[in-house]
Design a protein around this nucleic acid. Structure first.
Lengths: 102, 102
DNA sequence: TCAGTTAGTTACTTTATGTAAGTAAGTATA
DNA sequence: TATACTTACTTACATAAAGTAACTAACTGA
C-alpha cells in the first residue's frame, strides 16, 4: 500500500537527517572555515566532525583545501551544490522564528 | 571563539535531523494517515515510529485522533505548525531534483 | 473458544555517537 | 639536542539510539 517517495528526495533527507550535517552546512554558509572552528561553533565532537566532512566531501557538497603554512591550515568550504542548500536553510530559519519559542 | 547559532534554529535542526522525523512529516503532508500506513510507506520500524509520533505530538507538530470503530482507527495528521514546514520540504525537493542523480 | 484486526510495547542485538587520549608533521624555544 | 607547541586528525573504549522480532491489549466475528 505504499505510494513510494522519490528516491532523490529520500536521499536528500537521509543526508540532512544525519546528526550534525545540517549544522555543519549552515555554519559553512557563512564562509570557509577550519576544522577547529566548526568544532567549537556547533559543539560537535572531532570524531564525528571528521566523519561528516569526509561524507560531505564525497557527496560533492564540501571542499577541502590545504594551505601549507605553519602550522598547516586546512579550510573547509561549500561547493556550488552545498551553497544551493541556502534557500532550504532560510526556510528552516523562518519556520523556527515563527513557530518556536525563544 | 564561537559566534553562536540561534537556539531556535538549532532546535529546529535538532528536530529535523532525528532519523525519520523529516520523512514522517513529509508523508503526513499528503493527508492524515494511520500508523501502519506511515510505517509501510517510509520503512520505519514500529518501535521508532511510535517514539517519533509521541515526540512530534509533544512538539505540537502532529495530532493524534482516535476513531472508535472496529477495529479501532487512529489517525495522525499535521497541526498548523506541522503544515508550516511545507515550504521547507519543497526546497528539499527542489534541491534533490537539481543536484542529485536519479 | 479460536482466529483476526490495529496499534502499539518489550527484550534483545546492532549501529551510531560521545569521550578522552594518542599520533603526525612541522616550528619555535631552552 | 630535546622539549614543548600547534592543528588536524585517529584510535580505543563507553554510552545512547535504532533495528528486529515476538508479544500484548482491546475488540469483533466465525
Amino acid at each position: 500500500m505504499d505510494k513510494s517517495i522519490c528516491p532523490r528526495f529520500e536521499k536528500a533527507m537521509g543526508l540532512l537527517s544525519q546528526r550534525w550535517t545540517g549544522l555543519i552546512i549552515y555554519q559553512l554558509l557563512s564562509g570557509p572555515q577550519r576544522f577547529c572552528n566548526i568544532e567549537s561553533s556547533i559543539g560537535v565532537s572531532g570524531r564525528v566532525l571528521s566523519e561528516r566532512l569526509k561524507d560531505l566531501e564525497n557527496e560533492g557538497i564540501v571542499k577541502r583545501e590545504v594551505f601549507p603554512e605553519t602550522p598547516v591550515r586546512i579550510e573547509y568550504s561549500l561547493t556550488e551544490k552545498g551553497i544551493a542548500l541556502e534557500p532550504l536553510m532560510q526556510e528552516m530559519e523562518k519556520w523556527s522564528k515563527n513557530w518556536l519559542e525563544a
